Amino acid sequence: KLETFPLDVLVNTAAEDLPRGVDPSRKENHLSDEDFKAVFGMTRSAFANLPLWKQQNLKKEKGLF
């Protein structure tokens, strides 16, 4: 399991300012399950079932792209 970080560490943070080991294209993977659901309004599995373009739009909207 990946290390999780608080939302404010990941949202609207440039790649070079992210904690070590965080993939800038997969910031959402480093949210706790609770934060993930609070941000996206759905579970990880529901998010994973969305088309890629919709996932990317949601990530942009939430500052996690």
Rank of each mutant, 00 (worst) to 15 (best):
K1M: 12
K1P: 14
K1R: 13
K1H: 13
K1E: 13
L2R: 12
L2T: 10
L2K: 11
L2W: 15
E3R: 06
E3C: 13
E3K: 11
E3V: 12
E3I: 13
E3G: 08
T4Y: 14
T4Q: 09
T4F: 15
T4D: 04
T4S: 09
F5W: 11
F5E: 02
F5M: 06
F5Y: 15
F5I: 07
P6K: 02
P6A: 06
P6G: 06
P6E: 07
P6M: 02
L7P: 06
L7A: 06
L7Y: 15
D8V: 09
D8F: 09
D8H: 14
D8I: 08
D8E: 14
D8C: 13
D8Y: 08
V9N: 05
V9L: 13
L10S: 02
L10K: 02
L10P: 03
V11P: 03
V11M: 13
V11E: 05
V11K: 10
V11I: 14
V11T: 08
N12V: 07
N12G: 10
N12R: 10
T13S: 14
T13L: 11
A14Q: 10
A14M: 10
A14V: 09
A14W: 06
A14I: 09
A15E: 12
A15W: 13
A15D: 15
E16K: 13
E16C: 14
E16Y: 01
E16D: 10
E16I: 11
D17A: 10
D17E: 13
D17S: 10
D17Y: 08
D17R: 10
L18V: 06
L18A: 04
L18I: 06
L18M: 06
P19N: 04
P19I: 03
P19T: 03
P19A: 04
P19H: 04
P19D: 04
R20H: 14
R20N: 14
R20C: 15
R20M: 15
R20Y: 10
R20P: 15
G21W: 07
G21S: 09
G21N: 10
G21Q: 08
V22Q: 02
V22N: 03
V22S: 03
V22L: 06
V22C: 05
V22F: 05
V22A: 04
D23H: 06
D23I: 06
D23G: 03
P24F: 05
P24L: 07
P24Y: 03
P24Q: 08
P24I: 08
P24R: 07
P24E: 06
S25H: 14
S25T: 15
S25V: 08
R26D: 04
R26P: 03
R26Q: 11
R26C: 14
K27S: 05
K27W: 05
K27I: 15
K27H: 04
K27P: 07
E28K: 01
E28F: 03
E28P: 03
E28W: 01
N29T: 08
N29G: 09
N29P: 03
N29R: 13
N29Y: 10
N29Q: 15
H30N: 08
H30M: 05
H30G: 04
L31T: 01
L31S: 01
L31R: 01
L31H: 01
L31Y: 01
S32H: 04
S32M: 03
S32Y: 02
S32P: 01
S32G: 06
D33L: 05
D33R: 02
E34W: 08
E34F: 10
E34N: 10
E34L: 09
E34Q: 10
E34V: 09
E34C: 07
E34T: 09
E34S: 11
E34M: 09
D35W: 03
D35L: 05
D35A: 07
D35F: 02
F36A: 00
F36C: 00
F36D: 00
F36E: 00
K37G: 08
K37S: 13
K37I: 14
K37H: 14
A38E: 14
A38T: 13
A38V: 12
A38R: 11
A38H: 12
A38Q: 13
A38I: 13
V39D: 00
V39I: 09
V39W: 03
V39K: 01
F40A: 00
F40I: 03
F40H: 00
G41M: 08
G41S: 07
G41D: 09
G41K: 08
M42W: 01
M42C: 07
M42E: 00
M42H: 01
M42D: 00
M42Y: 05
T43Q: 06
T43V: 08
T43S: 13
T43R: 03
R44D: 01
R44K: 13
R44Y: 05
R44A: 05
R44T: 02
R44M: 05
R44N: 02
S45Q: 12
S45V: 13
S45R: 12
S45T: 15
S45G: 12
S45C: 14
S45W: 10
A46C: 11
A46E: 15
A46W: 05
A46N: 09
A46D: 14
F47T: 10
F47E: 00
F47A: 00
A48K: 12
A48N: 13
A48S: 11
A48M: 13
A48H: 13
A48I: 09
N49I: 12
N49S: 14
L50S: 01
L50H: 01
L50Y: 03
L50K: 01
L50D: 00
L50R: 00
P51H: 02
P51I: 01
P51E: 07
L52S: 09
L52D: 11
L52F: 13
L52K: 12
W53N: 08
W53S: 10
W53T: 09
W53C: 13
W53A: 09
W53M: 08
K54S: 11
K54L: 14
K54M: 13
K54C: 14
Q55E: 00
Q55G: 00
Q55L: 01
Q55A: 04
Q55K: 06
Q55C: 01
Q56I: 14
Q56Y: 10
Q56P: 00
Q56L: 12
Q56A: 14
N57G: 10
N57H: 12
N57M: 13
L58I: 11
L58F: 05
L58S: 01
L58R: 02
L58A: 04
L58W: 04
L58H: 03
L58G: 00
L58K: 04
K59F: 05
K59R: 09
K59L: 10
K60W: 11
K60D: 07
E61T: 09
E61A: 11
E61K: 09
E61W: 07
K62Q: 08
K62G: 03
K62L: 10
K62A: 14
K62P: 00
G63L: 06
G63T: 01
G63I: 01
G63N: 07
G63S: 04
G63F: 06
L64T: 01
L64R: 03
L64V: 03
L64G: 03
L64E: 03
F65V: 13
F65P: 06
F65D: 15
F65C: 15
F65A: 15
F65I: 13
F65T: 14
F65M: 15
F65S: 15
